[in-house]
Design a protein around this nucleic acid. Sequence first.
DNA 1: TTTGGTGCAAAGGCTTTGCAGAAAG
DNA 2: CTTTCTGCAAAGCCTTTGCACCAAA
Lengths: 134, 134
Amino acid sequence: MLELDQIDCSSLRITKQRQLILDELMSVKSHPTADELYQMVRKRLPKISLGTVYRNLEIMSDCGVIQKLDIGGTQKRFDANAETHYHVRCAKCGKVDDIDMPPDRSVEKEAGKLSKYTIIRHRLEFTGICPACK
Amino acid sequence: MLELDQIDCSSLRITKQRQLILDELMSVKSHPTADELYQMVRKRLPKISLGTVYRNLEIMSDCGVIQKLDIGGTQKRFDANAETHYHVRCAKCGKVDDIDMPPDRSVEKEAGKLSKYTIIRHRLEFTGICPACK
DNA sequence: TTTGGTGCAAAGGCTTTGCAGAAAG
DNA sequence: CTTTCTGCAAAGCCTTTGCACCAAA
């Protein structure tokens, strides 16, 4: 729940593993799960462990280098683009893509008026059927 | 992933358990997790099992009686209101509330133009700090 | 060196499931 | 009666974590 903690991002080291995980994530426009990323990185660094992938994805998203997506489905997904942007998820195969729509910050102001919460951010997600599943 | 399957909703029976789970869910405006609901129902039906709660929540959301929410955090939450509406989640305590904002279906048309997906629905969620956590 | 990172394997948290008996229709 | 549902407990799936060793700075 506590997602506001600041972690120390200044003492991070650049390890082979961390670099490769980021490289692989940046190389795809899809939004892979930790395990998918693990399979990708393993081709170049066969001895890397799944735990290391999870640990690094966690750290990098805490530091704002990447983004952890909590889209439908059971597994979390990761996005090399840490900026706010919108996504679509295929209801059949679970694939997640970006939607190239400019984020509309005004909805946050509106939501702030309609509730007693102090709004920090918003997230807009679409569900649909991807071209391959049609 | 396959969330489009139709399940047979015509042969459902009205059991004590199912009725109570729905009653409890309808009685709150919060959006409880399966376990929270289990604790609530247990006060009135001490011998109910957690598995039964999960099973019924699954069935009722498949049949469109209730809604399963996939909001941030590790646990799924449930909503007696199956209509499309928006939510806020507190970044500190994880509480989820409704936002009384009319759903804007036009964003779906826009997203359809900007991607190759056939859009089925959208979901808008806010993150903020609830009054109790301020 | 010092401190942070890694691999491994075990543990954890939430959810699903198989099965035999119970209950709804 | 027949079919669906329940309680229980075990299994499953994804993710986190403890520990001893390794490597970056």
